[in-house]
Design a binder for these strands. Structure first.
Lengths: 223, 223
DNA sequence: CATAAATGGTTCACTATTGGATCACATAAG
DNA sequence: CTTATGTGATCCAATAGTGAACCATTTATG
């Protein structure tokens, strides 16, 4: 941990909490213990815990300790935190449900300039050679299709999935499943989607997207 | 790579940022580190970073570091807050996408006791006479179907929709569209869904659910 | 009940890191 | 030659982390 140690520790603590740590009695370890564990001064831990307190994730009592705040299981925060544990298989299943529909909506509702933006993202992804750049424009391609589906809620669900997919287990997974051959296959499949969109063919777009996601799912989940 | 000028370094940094680098905590490496990495004087890096700052891509703080301004345009909190503005029409569209699928999954994956729980919620809803009680068990009926779809992410998306639908504009809407006649129609349609589920008929469940949601959408949105 | 231990709250002086600013000098392009 | 850009160095200012001491409150112990 180079610098801004307090921020890093706050992140780590939040990660542990959302992973279910200290749920039994809702009590976090004493600051002095955490300081020793992280190999850091107590003041630093105090600043980290203060951040959690500011966010309402935790309450502190002199002489008693630091306690996780009880969360309403129906609150948006709780729902989102449970979503963070989503398995890749479950999410792929939902992607295969939503994205073909989004493509179909896009074929019907998108403006020509929006479709051009989709095509541009596709082109840039095809032209890219390194994996991070390709990943970025691939994500952008999918995002732009949602963006012109003209359904705000659908768009936000996709944003949610995008954030979840940027978390650690997914990143490793994507890196492992990446290869030049697959990148080219994705480009061909994206092309088919773009073609259907430009022809304003909702059903063709839906099918092309579904086919693409089946490939992705197969590569990612290995089945 | 020969000699990178300040503008060249600025370009490289921008490329990294747009490829998602340093998104975790939004903090760029110290200028001195970048200078060493690029094999260049610190002054040169400073000029490059100054360009990013001029473009508003980055903010600098003495003693703290240099931070991306676009920390996370799609943080979970921001996404959820935008979702709160979801229009009823958009959400109905997505319900009609997800719930038939959930019903289909449930027909395949649910245990018998889970299906009994679904049927019980349906029965209680049918037996209830006042609108709040009916609303509650109607929601519970739909929720239990998601619960036995065996897809955790799908279940959480439904939780999200449920919370959003409990907010003000929806409540008024539901109250306005409620009538004894419609309540009975919903019971008949729920019955058809339950029947398909008990017969383990995924396609029948999907179609029954879709038909039901089309009725609901028609009643709610008046079209 | 009285005392000790545990735990969060507060403060202070010190060090390390990091961006801000300036200067003299070298090198290449026009 | 002139100009622009990069180099290397030095110092400044702001912020973060360290280590230690002491306080206030709660809980456990005898």
């Amino acid at each position: 941990m180079s610098r801004l140690t307090a921020t890093g520790i706050a992140l780590e603590l939040k990660k542990r909490i959302s992973a279910g740590a200290w749920q039994e009695d809702g009590r976090m370890p004493p600051e002095r213990d955490l300081a020793q564990e992280f190999g850091v001064a107590r003041n630093t831990v105090r600043r980290a815990v203060a951040m959690l307190e500011d966010e309402g994730a935790v309450v502190r009592h002199v002489g008693r300790g630091t306690f996780l705040t009880v969360i309403d299981p129906d609150s948006l925060a709780a729902i989102v935190s449970r979503m963070e544990g989503t398995s890749p298989a479950d999410m792929m299943e939902i992607r295969q449900l939503l994205e073909p529909a989004a493509a179909s909506f896009a074929a019907t509702n998108a403006s020509t300039s929006e479709l051009n933006a989709v095509r541009e993202a596709h082109q840039t992804a095809c032209d890219s050679t390194d994996m991070p750049t390709f990943e970025h424009w691939d994500a952008e391609f999918h995002h732009r299709i949602f963006a012109c589906s003209r359904n705000e809620f659908l768009k936000e669900i996709h944003n949610l999935m995008r954030v979840l997919r940027n978390q650690s287990p997914w990143f490793e997974m994507k890196k492992r499943s990446f290869s030049e051959e697959r990148r080219q296959a994705y480009c061909r499949e994206h092309q088919a989607i773009v073609d259907a969109l430009m022809q304003r063919d909702p059903d063709g777009a839906r099918q092309a997207m579904l086919a693409h996601l089946q490939t992705v799912g197969h590569n990612l989940l290995g089945r």
